[in-house]
Design a protein around this nucleic acid. Structure first.
Lengths: 234, 234
DNA sequence: GCAGGTTTTTTGGTTAACCAATTTGTTTGA
DNA sequence: TCAAACAAATTGGTTAACCAAAAAACCTGC
């Protein structure tokens, strides 16, 4: 167990050190947006690491929009200046794994917004999808079973109906993490599931009649309990 | 050029089809959280694709918390039920690339929150970092140069001071995309940079005196112009 | 039977060779 | 002189062989 943690942190360290070296190389060579980096082979030789490690590091920087790889052509500095790049890489290297509290805090922020947008922009098809998720949740909760999954899908359906692809993606990334933490800390409670049915229904109705203020308020009510848990657990 | 687009969409299609097949396999075999998937080799053979394609697909599902790979042991279904998994994978497959409008909309939402949290939680060290970014921005803007990068770093410094690692990460992912779109659509204007100096200073002061309401209001003012652009451009 | 140790197999990760597309350099011909 | 055509080198991506760790199977001695 200890060994696993060690090797994982080792790999992380290797990748971070490569990112640092790429950063230093860009600075040293005064590369500007659009300029080409040395090939992956040269970098792996220069840094004395495997090419796959270099590729992984490049992929990570590509995710944050700092580099851009083009097949059979090369890896290029994206349209971000050197100053911003340096600052961003420093931030990326110091990124800590998200705490439960930060996840819940962000989820609440996002959901209060997506529910508002959903009430304004939802199509009939969106509404139908939300209704299906609501029905599935109600059925599961009333039967006494655990309805965490159906709860998740209800909220994701709203996020999708918001018409904001960025928020939709973000919700997809954080919600499962929250669920796993919930189960981990045993925050989830079947009693809450039954209580949640009416709250969900009220949210749905507000989206249906396209009342953004009411929708946000009902979502806020829905989160009031979660909110307390959030600040108690950790 | 056309060919490149073709191959890229091909790869995307291949990965998506693998994800679908993994989903179907989990359903067919009734795998539950904690259960082990067939090995990468077997999957690549079964699906008649290369092992690296399988690895990439697994990595993507791992990013969304659906699978979990353990070295020399296997790939496992994460602690998310089958129902939620199916819904999430459907969403992931249908994820569209974020529009400029959705990026700006999300950025404003995040920044109005991070600036509030930063004013409440900022350490002296955070404040110092923000001040440095502010000074760099002012210097650059006053010299008549383009100060987009310094502007970015100022906002990222605030996000970092918010003490919320999730929002910090999100800001890191969307802000560079916004910048590139700005330059693409020529929304950026040097005249605005100079005007922004005072707005930045006011935001900084509000964070300094730890006034969350004022901080949020000043950030809102700062975004008022951006907001208009957002809904005009696209 | 079965606990303890040993060998074999399986596994995700890593490395190195290979590929096709691209770019670069060179030659050719008018 | 220069553009067009061809050839060689470069590049990110792909494939296949290899590695060490983990798990499973198999002995072994009691």
């Amino acid at each position: 167990m200890k060994l696993e943690v060690l090797t994982v942190s080792d790999n992380q360290e290797i990748q971070n050190s490569i990112i640092v070296k790429i950063k230093e190389l860009i600075n040293y060579k005064n590369l500007e947006p659009g300029d080409k980096l040395p090939s992956e082979r040269m970098l792996s030789e220069k840094f004395e690491v495997s090419r796959s490690n270099v590729r992984d590091a490049i992929q990570k920087l590509e995710f944050y929009g700092i580099l851009k790889s083009i097949p059979q052509s090369g890896t290029f500095v994206a349209n971000i200046g050197v100053i911003a790049m340096n600052g961003m890489i420093d931030d990326i290297l110091r990124l800590e794994s998200p705490s439960f509290k930060s996840l819940v805090e962000t989820r609440i922020l996002l959901e209060l917004k997506t529910v508002r947008l959903a009430s304004l922009r939802r199509t009939n098809k969106d509404l139908k999808k939300i209704k299906e998720a609501l029905d599935a949740y109600e059925k599961k909760a009333l039967s006494g079973e655990d309805a965490v999954q159906e709860d998740l899908l209800f909220h994701l359906a709203i996020a999708k109906a918001s018409g904001n692809s960025t928020m939709n993606t973000f919700m997809l990334t954080i919600t499962p993490q929250i669920i796993m933490n919930f189960e981990k800390y045993h925050v989830c409670d079947k009693r809450l599931s039954v209580l949640g049915i009416n709250e969900h229904k009220e949210i749905f109705e507000a989206i249906k009649i396209q009342d953004p203020v009411l929708a946000k308020q009902k979502m806020k009510d829905h989160f009031s309990i979660l909110y307390q848990y959030c600040y108690n657990v950790k």
